[in-house]
Every structure is written in structure tokens, then in C-alpha cells.
Design a protein around this nucleic acid. Structure first.
Length: 260
DNA sequence: CGTTTTTGACCCGCGC
DNA sequence: GCGCGGGTCAAAAACG
């Protein structure tokens, strides 16, 4: 995860470097002490943030490992029940970047990944906002799911071979299951309208669910969210706002005084 | 008027 | 060989 959050250089500059031209020692000493205290607090915050990033990374790695194990387990169980055809589909979904079945020569090597997206129950559309532009070319009601399956091609087709199938989960209709086939051979057109894929129990109990969704989580929006959370928690602290107010007033004071 | 979506028809692989 | 089911095509409709 290449992130500025993991960068130790990230610091909260409170602009508390006050250089007051006040000769009164006692308020200055107080301010100096306050300044030292704020710097230490700043250091602590940086350390905490670094640890937080490290913990997040290790947790993410752990989650991916668990999902991989879970997928393998489901594959073994379902092998007893599924027909050969459906089993082949299952394997295709569980194992990403696996070659397509040799019995289907029309599909050359395709990368298959599954992404689950939480939507509003009132939203009946089957649109998964992933930043790419798609053109719908078909819709079909399948045997094992009453919700229609929509077929999309990348709008860059035929240059871009990527297709996706979108269908609501039979277990939880508020979840859209999108199956992507192939890799885009063009840059991502937009990073602005990405729906963060969902991690919940309904999704992980779906045997067709793939761990690939973790890679599709937009790291930029996650970073923004974390920064916003940290900013709000800091600004909600009375000591922090007091320190900022002191820093700003001190700065104003600095600009006012030299001519006195 | 160009683009996208809808939808019925068709194709093809698989199982019996 | 036949039927079933999933995937794709393509004409018509809808949309901006």
C-alpha cells in the first residue's frame, strides 16, 4: 500500500512556532512549555499513525489469507454436489488468473475475478460503479437465481476484451455480485465514482465469492476517509482547538508587534 | 442523430 | 441425438 499515511514524514503542523516579542518571561515560559508539549504530542500522533498503518497492512494481509483458505474449503465441499460444468465455473471464480477450461476454446486465457458491492435496497438497478464505462449487451434470468443477470462489455470494446456479469445475490438482494473477465488494456478512465466493495458475512458465505475483491478496494478513498476521521477526531478535541487558536493568535500577534 | 439499453432469437457446450 | 441452460447477437426502442 503506497500511502502517505505510512510515510513517517506525515505530521500535523500546528504552526506553534511562536516567536513573540514579549519580554515578559512568565507568559513566554508558559508558551514555551506549551510548545514543547505540543511537539511531543505531535511526535506521539505521528508514531500512532505509523503503527495504525502497519496494523492495517498486517490485518489486510491476514484477511486475504483467511479468505483464500475459506475459498479452498468451499471448493472442496461443493465439489461433491456440483455437476462438472458448474464445478468448472466455480473453479474459474475461486482461482483468479486461471486459464479458462480447455473445453471452451472460444475463451482464450482470461482473468476472472468476483466483486461484491452493497447497494441500497431501493436501488433496483444492477450498476456497479467501478470507474470504467460499460455497455450492456444482454440480460438473462438464470436457473439458480431469480434476479436477472446483466452482461456488460467495456465501452472500449473491441479494443478492450473485458466483460462483466452483474447479478444480485440470492441470499441478500442488496448485494450485487459482479464477475469480471479479462484485463483492461487501457488506463482507468475515472477514479471518482468508485463504490467500495463490501466485506460482510453474506458475501463471504457465498461459495462463488473470490478474495480478489480486496484488491479492488480503492486505496485513495480509504486514505481520504482515514484522514477525514483523524481530522474530525482532532478538531473535536478541546485541547487541540485551543492549541490551534493559540497558534493562530500568536501568529497574528507576531505580525502585529514588530512595529511597536 | 448518435449512443445506449432492451429483449427475443440464436448459438454452442454439456449431460443424459 | 436431443434438450437444457448460459452466453451472445442484433433489431427495435429509448434516451440525451
Amino acid at each position: 500500500m503506497d500511502t502517505s499515511l505510512g510515510d513517517n514524514s506525515f505530521s500535523i503542523d500546528l504552526n506553534t512556532n511562536l516567536s513573540l516579542h514579549n519580554t515578559n518571561t512568565s507568559p513566554r515560559e508558559t508558551l514555551d512549555e506549551e510548545l514543547i508539549r505540543m511537539r511531543e504530542e505531535n511526535k506521539k500522533l505521528v508514531t500512532m499513525l505509523t503503527n495504525l498503518c502497519e496494523n492495517y497492512n498486517s490485518l489486510q494481509t491476514h484477511l486475504i489469507e483467511l479468505l483464500q483458505k475459506y475459498s479452498t474449503h468451499n471448493e472442496e465441499n461443493s465439489n461433491l454436489l456440483l455437476t462438472r460444468k458448474r464445478k468448472a465455473e466455480e473453479e474459474c471464480c475461486v482461482n483468479n488468473f486461471e486459464e479458462a477450461s480447455p473445453k471452451r476454446p472460444r475463451e482464450i486465457t482470461t482473468n476472472v475475478s468476483t466483486v461484491c458491492v452493497k447497494t441500497n435496497r431501493s436501488d433496483q438497478t444492477s450498476v456497479v460503479k467501478d470507474g470504467y464505462n460499460w455497455r450492456k449487451y444482454g440480460q438473462k434470468v438464470t436457473r439458480d437465481n431469480p434476479f436477472p443477470r446483466a452482461y456488460y462489455k467495456c465501452s472500449f470494446a473491441p479494443t478492450c476484451p473485458v466483460k462483466k456479469k452483474v447479478q444480485r445475490s440470492i441470499e441478500d438482494p442488496s448485494i450485487l455480485v459482479a464477475v469480471y473477465e479479462g484485463e483492461h488494456n487501457h488506463p482507468h478512465p475515472s477514479q471518482t465514482e468508485i463504490t467500495v466493495p463490501l466485506v460482510n458475512q453474506d458475501v463471504t458465505t457465498d461459495p462463488t465469492f473470490s478474495n480478489k475483491f480486496m484488491e479492488d478496494i480503492d486505496t485513495n478513498s480509504l486514505q481520504q476517509h482515514l484522514v477525514q476521521q483523524m481530522a474530525s477526531s482532532l478538531t473535536s478535541s478541546p485541547t487541540f482547538t485551543a492549541a490551534v487558536a493559540a497558534a493562530i493568535s500568536g501568529k497574528i500577534f507576531e505580525y502585529d508587534l514588530p512595529f511597536k
